[in-house]
């Protein structure tokens, strides 16, 4: 109940930040446009763009509610319902963004496995929200958080896909599934990608909740 109210109000909040929202929606589009001539590159960049956009937006949403959260806790809300509500809202937004861009790709490109292209974007969006919230939880200031996310995305973009570094990056799963969608090959790519996503998601969600459980903890005083 509380989770749903937090989620719906967070969605409204984000919806009112018109300029930021437009920039976030547009960001993956620029990524896509630059290599539109190459199906594989454009989809990979688009996917990464979705991940970056949603994680940055989540980072800002989490940071913006720093003043409200302790009061909600005092009023009686649990950490899981507060943070869970925000993650739900941002994940929903990410899924909507992913579906929108998938439609664009379906129309604009000739993709081998269209369903896998949808999956890669969804996976990117699903990982992005908790990643943004984890970074927001660890780095309380927005600028630091945004720079950290920039580093993650840059390393992800530049690392050798076969190397260990790339595998440790949060959006590696999307890359694997994206490769299957564009180039085909074994379905193992998809399974590996999903497994990677599952682990990353659990780490980010668990980490976020752990940090906020600690930060929003209330002293338990005995009754007088």
């Amino acid at each position: 109940m509380t989770t749903l109210v937090v989620a719906s109000l967070s969605t409204r909040e984000v919806g009112r930040r018109r300029a930021a929202l437009i920039l976030v929606i547009a960001l993956p589009f620029w990524f896509y446009l630059v290599r539109r001539d190459l199906t594989g590159q454009s989809i990979r960049m688009l996917t990464l763009g979705i991940g970056w956009a949603i994680s940055t937006l989540t980072l800002f949403v989490v940071n913006a509610s720093r003043g409200v959260d302790p009061r909600l806790r005092l009023t009686g809300a649990s950490v899981v319902s507060i943070i869970g509500g925000r993650l739900l809202a941002m994940t929903g937004l990410g899924v909507a963004l992913a579906l929108g861009y998938w439609t664009l790709v379906a129309i604009d490109q000739d993709v081998l496995h269209l369903w896998a292209a949808a999956l890669t974007m969804l996976v990117s969006a699903l990982v992005a929200a908790p990643l943004g919230s984890l970074i927001g939880a660890l780095l309380p200031r927005e600028l630091e958080g945004a720079l950290a996310l920039l580093s993650v995305v840059a390393v992800q973009m530049l690392a050798d896909p076969a190397g260990l570094t790339a595998k440790l990056m949060p959006f590696w799963s999307a890359r694997e599934i994206g490769t299957y969608a564009v180039d085909g090959g074994s379905l193992d790519l998809v399974w590996r990608g999903l497994a990677h996503m599952g682990v990353t998601w659990l780490i980010c969600v668990g980490g976020t909740l752990a940090v906020f459980q600690w930060r929003l903890r209330l002293a338990r005083y005995p009754e007088p």
Binding site: M1, T2, G67, R71, L72, T75, A77
Partner: peptide, 30 residues
């Protein structure tokens, strides 16, 4: 157990209206 805190500043969400704040804090209190 039941305690209310009114901070000196902050403590509100800039993008929400008063009624949305009531809904949010009300939900927290059940």
């Amino acid at each position: 157990r039941r305690v209310g805190l009114v901070p000196q500043d902050g403590g509100t969400a800039g993008w929400l209206t008063a009624e949305e704040h009531f809904t949010l804090f009300g939900a927290a209190a059940g």
